[in-house]
């Protein structure tokens, strides 16, 4: 696997952003349940080639990712309680520890959506806090709210709860719900958490313009499967060339 030293960032800017600004704001997502080992490997190579911030992979793939990403500047991330958030707290903690023991430095966990919607905020908070505690000093924790199932008030409550529980990020979606990142939700999230809690937008970010729009409202990480399209579009625009054609197969999901 090529090392960080051999990656050359394209020059040029788009809207004042450098290639590095955009690439290092992407968590390349390899979470679809049907991905084969070869497809995961190809995705890991793409992540290194494009020099993104991290890869978010399925728990079973963490050892593979750690191996193939070692020596690169791309971090290993995985998921906890994904995608439904309904696992017991104990299970989530075990998942977190296993991922970190295998090399993950970022954990995208789903909060307990049902408990949140039931108003059991104390439980939701302690569930998140348990994972945060297990990850202390070892990994960043991103708390997925899954806004598709929440009212605006619930998005606000969830954001605040995640912040109080010690989450490093609040994240809009798993990408597997009917809707993903929505600008109005992100604005609410940004207004509901302190400045040191960051925002991750995931679900439906398939173009450079979509990414630029969410960056404007305070997002600093984007979960994407369309990483190649986004960054190829960046390179073309930065060089003043027409955008590359979109992929023939435009899939609806994340």
């Amino acid at each position: 696997m090529s090392s960080a030293a051999s990656v050359e960032w394209p020059t040029g800017t788009v809207n004042g952003y450098s290639y590095r600004d955009i690439a290092k704001a992407i968590d390349h997502s390899l979470l679809k349940p049907e991905l084969t080992e070869q497809e995961v490997e190809a995705g890991l190579q793409l992540a290194v080639l494009y020099d993104v911030a991290s890869v978010c992979c399925r728990p079973c793939d963490v050892p593979l990712a750690s191996r193939l990403l070692s020596g690169s500047d791309v971090r290993v991330g995985s998921t906890v309680g994904f995608p439904h958030g309904a696992n017991t707290t104990e299970t989530k903690v075990v998942e977190a520890v296993q991922a970190m023991d295998s090399g993950a430095a970022e954990l995208d966990m789903v909060l307990n959506i049902g408990q949140l919607r039931s108003g059991n905020i104390d439980f939701v908070r302690s569930d998140i806090a348990a994972v945060v505690e297990a990850a202390r000093g070892r990994a960043l924790v991103k708390v997925i709210l899954e806004n598709a199932y929440l009212t605006e008030d619930q998005t606000v409550t969830a954001s605040k709860t995640a912040a109080v529980a010690g989450g490093n990020f609040v994240k809009t979606s798993t990408g597997f719900a009917p809707t993903g990142a929505v600008v109005s939700d992100l604005i609410l999230m940004r207004a509901s958490v302190p400045p040191d809690v960051r925002l991750k937008a995931a679900g439906g970010i398939r173009s450079l313009d979509a990414m630029l729009e969410v960056l404007d409202v305070g997002v600093t990480r984007v979960g994407a499967t369309a990483t190649q399209q986004i960054l190829d579009e960046f390179k073309a625009r930065a060089a003043g060339l027409p955008a590359p054609p979109p992929p023939v197969e435009a899939s609806d999901d994340y």
């Binding site: 952003y17 600004d21 290092k24 704001a25 911030a53 940004r190 207004a191 960051r198 960056l215 404007d216 409202v217 305070g218 997002v219 600093t220 990480r221």
Partner: peptide
Amino acid sequence: SNDFHSFE
């Protein structure tokens, strides 16, 4: 610290 100008 991946800090962009955000327009809050």
